[in-house]
Amino acid sequence: MQTSLKRVVFGASFFLFTIVASVSGYMLFGWSFLDALYMVVITVFGVGFGEVKPIETPALKIFTMVVIVAGTSSAVYIVGSFLQMVTEGEIQKVLEARRMTKGIESLEQHVIICGFGRIGQILARKLTESEQKFVVIDNDEGRMASAEKRGYLALQGNATDEGILIAAGVKQARVLATVLPDDALNVFITLTTRELNPEVEIIARGELPSTEKKLRLAGANHVVLPASIGAERMAQTIVNPHALDFLREDAGRQDLSDLLAQIDIQLEELTLAAGSPFIGKPLSSMEVRGKGAFVVVAIRKEDGEIVTHPSHDRILHQGDTVILMGHRGDIPKFAQRYAMKRQMYYRGMSY
């Protein structure tokens, strides 16, 4: 495609040079600019009108023949290169579409992503990193071009259409994720998918909490509410900033707090203030008094260093922040019983 474009540019440049050189040549033979330009135009384009002035000298005849050959050749070269460029583009589109279709037809146990917006793009990137096979469906031409540019298998069309889902291999798919920002469309896609493949696992996005029930009734195995997850993450950042620092240390733990929240387990942090009965004692003494209500996952020292997987015999010091994991409600009771300080943060200030 780029080679054909270069040919068009080269031909146009040569044609323009031929016109300028020809006009200049006739003017050197004593013709006016208008007469010279008129002569070049009727000669190059083969109109067939008579010469402006008699061409009698051998030099003028030879020059005119050169103008005819150069002008006609450059014009033909431009047209041919342009047609080649157009033809190559169309052939390339057909071949690309055929390659895409064959690639999708050969897939089994793959993932289908309905919607290539912000969430769909993040999901596709994560699946690529984990070497998962997937197909993207979206009806926006620009987003589909973006998906194809990244090397994804993409199918342009409406994901609510049975034909599009079948073309994407829904009957052989392992998972379908519908991540459109429209709850009604997600419900409809879930219903259609469940009818086409009762065994496929469906993960659906919901904007409103009230939609979760509808999506599950429609056949979704899992419902993800991005707004709720975002609010939960912000709350965790305010309430337990050190716990979030601990999670960010490892990319594999970044979403742990969100997953724990779904099963009523949370990360909490308790600071050993002056007078705490655990100061100067091993970590095991705190775990014993907790009676299995929590698990210590990390300790943040007063200088900011985070110690992961602390040993049971590690001595606790004043100012240490112990990061715990346990059921909601159990840790606050433990902190109140032993007068431990639970840190609450708001806009970067500690109270």
Rank of each mutant, 00 (worst) to 15 (best):
Y345Q: 07
V295R: 08
I306T: 03
V223K: 05
S146W: 14
K341H: 10
S24A: 12
K126Q: 06
V136Y: 06
V20G: 06
R248Y: 14
F15E: 00
G25Q: 08
H317I: 04
Y26T: 00
G329E: 08
A154P: 05
V69D: 02
A177H: 01
V41M: 13
A70Y: 11
N139R: 07
S74K: 03
V179I: 07
Q132H: 12
R125A: 06
Q132P: 11
I137P: 01
M27W: 05
L123N: 03
K102L: 13
Q92Y: 01
M27T: 05
S146I: 14
F17P: 08
F278H: 00
T43S: 05
E108A: 15
D255P: 06
A293Q: 08
V111W: 02
E148H: 11
G304R: 01
H242Q: 12
R233L: 15
F246A: 01
Q266Y: 09
D258H: 08
R342P: 13
I104W: 00
A231T: 15
S311Q: 07
L217E: 08
F188S: 13
V135A: 04
P58L: 03
F49L: 15
D182K: 03
Q132G: 09
L5D: 00
M39T: 09
I42K: 07
A147S: 06
T57M: 10
V179C: 01
F188Q: 14
